[in-house]
Amino acid sequence: MSNDMVKKASSFEILNHWVLAVSFFVLTISGYAFLFHLEQVGSVFGGFNQMKVIHNWAGVVFGVSLFFTIFHYLPVSLKFTADDFAWIGKAGGYLSKKAAVPPQDELNAGQKLYYLVVLISGIVISASGIVIWLRPMAADINRWVLISHLLHNISFDLMVIAIPAHMYLATLANPGTFRIMVYGTVPLAWAKKRHAKWVQRMGF
């Protein structure tokens, strides 16, 4: 087998993913500090008043960055085939070393589902955050704020469950994956094993 490398992410995709990740961390850490009145965390941000400003603007960065991911991940994430359902049936082969899984496209079925969850909860958390922040003129604004507060926190819970799992799967659980976030490339052999349909489609 050769040492050929294939490109899985462009420089822009890599940069955008880091912007998304860093803004997410800033938002999540300040979010927990708001939720549980963590005063020490607040002082790291220069007090709760400043933390609010940072949280709100980090939210804008997060929203813009999330928007760009649509071009990278959405088309492939919407294509579910029989192989994807079979992959899910086998839990992606994560529950046993002996399990064999059907060939996958550029993203495997789990990654597709994960992206759809992040996209939807990301849109909801951004939109609801903007309603709480800017309180658009409306006669029943208090109801809008309460609904937004609820949605903001439901999406928060979804994200703090889904994103750590994603981080584990992209690092420790699958050696060789993390380099995509640094170099954007993977060994052809790696790609053939994990994304055979993609390799075939691209003609690598």
């Binding site: 079979a86 082969g93 994560y94 529950l95 046993s96 070393k97 002996k98 399990a99 064999a100 899984v101 059907p102 060939p103 819970d157 703090v160 469950i161 889904a162 750590p164 799992a165 584990y168 420790l172 659980a173 699958n174 050696p175 060789g176 052999a189 790696w190 094993k193 994990r194 055979a196």
Partner: peptide, 28 residues
């Protein structure tokens, strides 16, 4: 609880089943 659960499940998976090393990845 959700965050703790996700981290705990990841650790447990790492210990009990372990990572998907390239040479072990099986395909249908």
């Amino acid at each position: 609880i959700g965050l703790g659960g996700a981290v705990a499940a990841s650790l447990l998976h790492y210990i009990a089943i372990g990572p998907k090393k390239d040479e072990e990845v099986k395909k249908d």
